[in-house]
Computed example of a mutant assay.
Amino acid sequence: MPKSRIRKKADYTPPPEKKAATELDFSSGGRRWVAPLMLLMFGLGLAWIVVFYVTEGSLPIDPLGNWNIVVGFGFIAAGFVVSTQWK
């Protein structure tokens, strides 16, 4: 019985990747603004709540009353939202 020929398959080479001209590349540290903004939001929220308690409710915005606490926690929550962008 004759031996069958062994077929050699050509090695696969993927085509070169093409980048679009409008594509933005943030992998090289383009988000340096995230950490300072995150810390600023945390600090601002904490300071808002502390000022509210120290001044017995007359500052930062008197007409808001106890809603000043919600505003302070809103700044802190915004800091957490910004922190999701940190790489």
Rank of each mutant, 00 (worst) to 15 (best):
L24K: 11
F52L: 03
L44C: 07
D11M: 12
N68F: 03
K18H: 04
L64S: 01
A35C: 15
S27M: 11
R5N: 09
G65S: 13
A78M: 10
V82N: 02
N68G: 01
V34C: 04
K18L: 15
A10I: 15
R5L: 14
G29P: 11
P15E: 15
V70E: 06
G29I: 04
V34G: 02
R7Y: 11
P36L: 06
G79E: 04
K8S: 08
M1E: 14
L46A: 11
V82F: 04
V51K: 02
K18C: 14
I69L: 05
E56K: 14
M38L: 15
P63N: 00
S83H: 03
E23A: 08
I6Y: 07
L46D: 06
R5C: 12
F75V: 02
G65A: 03
W67F: 13
N66D: 12
T84A: 08
K19D: 08
L59S: 12
L37Y: 00
G79A: 00
V54E: 13
T13G: 06
K3M: 07
M1Y: 09
V82Y: 01
K3Q: 14
G45Y: 00
R7D: 08
T55P: 06
V71T: 03
T55A: 05
Y12K: 11
G57M: 07
S28N: 08
G29E: 08
A47W: 09
W48L: 03
L24Q: 13
Q85V: 13
T13K: 15
S83W: 04
P2C: 11
V70H: 05
